[in-house]
Design a protein around this nucleic acid. Structure first.
Length: 521
RNA sequence: GGCCCCGUCGUCUAGUGGUUAGGACACCGCCCUUUCAAGGCGGUAACACGGGUUCGAGUCCCGUCGGGGUCACCA
């Protein structure tokens, strides 16, 4: 049997991190078995601007390297892959269900339904529709229609027996049929509902494995009933544990950003992203600038594989120690059997750590390619950038070393090399230049800088220690002052490396420029 | 509330009857130090509870408690 899996997003305008995990697992499973991974768009109930709402989702998946064999943009033998274009298939299925007696036309009004629901609740019983306004024959249907009632189509669910599902993650799960509602599958206007559409599509697209989040587990009986009634073989099911909120077991939701920001780890990731966004002219108010949404990570400069690798570990593990995988390794190692069944909370700190490890391991030139666009967006590079500027950035990347965690971090470490007169941070000036004697030290070091040869980190360091020693001062007094004088702020790559990159002329100019800012300057 | 799912360090997890209950992130401490979500070393920390079964239970069974999902003419 060919393995065919699918990810079926609804065009909502954003890619949720939990959705990515689902897509990833489907993709991994298909790739591992040499099967196909299909992208189908569940747009049965969405407004017209589908392209606009879909593009961010497709972009996100592409960025993450989750490629699809069939679906939007690539087509495929089972096209179309949009539910909105398959309605004739659903209508046919409804007719078939009606003809075989597995569904019926129903003419109850919403008010009448509410009444029944309320009565059941008052009696403390679970609600089950009485089928009071069901029309099992044409005459009845016409009578109701004559009354002006609008008819929907409902499933005629079995009222006894049990359904047994063999779930790849959860094992054997049983449901009593008598608890299942007669769900509506077609509206009065003829449009069809999700459950019907999904089952028909999964069958039509020859989906072999339905791998989805646990929230769909309780939807399985009605879908199994639809499939059975239509004569479809049941696909294999795997219900993934929910991706939960940081430090909680509740389903992660894009709408609860405010709440998550009270979590320190989450807030730290957000704030860090905000700082980068600010520099590249990104609106922090944007709906998608949210660590629950994939766009956030792309915009800030995370590595897509870090996201994939981290997410693979949410609800799945290979063994007791392996945590880092290449794409090929993950495809080889993945298995449904090793998926966990308990909810896994999203831990932004751990994601950060994975990102950190991968960024550190990235070759310098790859970092360079990743980081250049951020500098361009911040207006720190011309378009195209001059070879000199690119060379400088490369040197900064080497000097900054492990400090660059995401591509956007380059803004903090490289900006002052690329500016003619970097702004002086007031707090930094107050903290590092105010101390009496600083101006004299700076002046003395400037004199050394003017003659140091070669203009490299070691001699620059030796010269600084010499100046400090001669003045009877502490190394810290000068080091911090020089950093602020030269960069305008307190953080940056190693100081001597910074000076070397800056060059003698600029270093001197900045040292001189800072003199008047010193407390006793 | 009904139904269903879940329950090992704060978090992600390993563990398939016999382990000093392992790893990772976080956290704490120490060291290094010229900044830092830099680096090095070390440490604290878990089987929800109660009954069984068994020579032996984190692992099997039952119950309790706790958490979550779902109960739409949304997907």
């Amino acid at each position: 049997m060919t393995v065919r899996t699918r990810f079926a997003p609804s065009p909502t305008g954003y890619l949720h991190i939990g959705g990515v995990r689902t897509a990833l697992f489907n993709w991994l499973f298909a790739r591992q078995h040499g099967g196909q991974f299909i992208l189908r768009i569940d747009d049965t109930d969405v407004a017209r601007n589908i392209d606009e709402a879909l593009e961010p989702i497709l972009d996100g998946l592409r960025w993450l390297g989750i490629d699809w064999d069939e679906g939007p943009g690539v087509g495929g033998p089972y096209a179309p892959y949009y539910q909105s274009q398959r309605s004739d298939r659903y209508a046919a299925a409804v007719e078939q269900l009606l003809a075989s007696g597995h569904a019926y036309r129903d003419y109850a009004t919403p008010a009448e339904l509410d009444e029944e629901r309320a009565a059941a609740q008052a009696a403390g019983k679970p609600f089950l529709y009485s089928r009071r306004f069901a029309a099992f024959d044409e005459a009845t249907a016409q009578r109701y229609q004559a009354e002006g009632r609008a008819g929907v189509v409902r499933l005629k669910m079995p009222r006894e027996g049990v359904l047994v599902i063999e779930d790849a993650v959860r094992g054997r799960v049983e449901f009593a049929w008598e608890r299942e509602q007669d769900h509506v599958i077609q509206r009065a206007d003829g449009s069809c509902l999700y459950h019907l559409a999904t089952v028909v599509d999964d069958h039509d697209l020859a989906i072999s494995h339905v791998i989805r989040a646990e929230e769909h587990l309780s939807n399985t009986p009605r879908q199994a009933f639809i499939g059975q009634s239509l004569g479809y073989p049941l696909p294999a099911f795997a219900h993934l544990p929910l991706v939960a909120e940081p430090g909680s077991r509740t389903k992660l939701s894009k709408r609860k950003l405010e709440k998550y920001l009270k979590n320190q780890d989450f807030k730290q990731v957000m704030d860090h992203g905000l700082k980068i966004a600010e520099r590249i002219g990104l609106s922090p108010e944007a709906d998608t600038f949210n660590p629950v949404i994939v766009d956030f990570y792309r915009e800030v400069g995370y590595l897509p594989w870090a996201i994939d690798n981290y997410l693979a570990l949410l609800g799945w593990s290979y063994d007791d120690k392996t945590e880092y995988f290449t794409r090929e390794e993950l495809i080889r190692c993945f298995s449904l059997e090793r998926i966990n069944s308990s909810p896994a909370s999203f831990d932004p700190k751990k994601l950060w750590a994975v990102q950190d490890t991968m960024m550190v391991a990235l070759p310098v030139d790859e970092k360079l390619q990743l980081m250049l666009p951020f500098l361009a967006k911040a207006g720190l590079l011309s378009d195209p950038p001059s070879p000199e500027a690119v060379a400088t950035v490369r040197e900064v990347i080497v000097a900054a070393g492990d400090r660059l965690k995401v591509a956007g971090d380059i803004l903090v470490y490289a900006d002052f090399f690329l500016m003619d007169e970097p702004p002086m941070d007031e707090a930094a000036v107050a903290k590092r230049l105010a101390k009496p004697g600083t101006a004299a030290l700076l002046k003395a070091y400037a004199a050394a800088v003017a003659t140091v040869d070669p203009f490299e980190p070691e001699p620059l360091e030796a010269a600084l220690k010499q100046v400090v020693g001669d003045a009877g001062a502490k190394v810290g007094d000068l080091v911090h002052a020089v950093r602020v004088a030269v960069s305008g702020k307190t953080v940056g790559p190693g100081l001597y490396e910074s000076l070397a990159i800056l060059g003698r002329e600029k270093s001197l100019a900045r040292l001189t420029r800072a003199l008047p800012l010193c407390g006793d300057g």
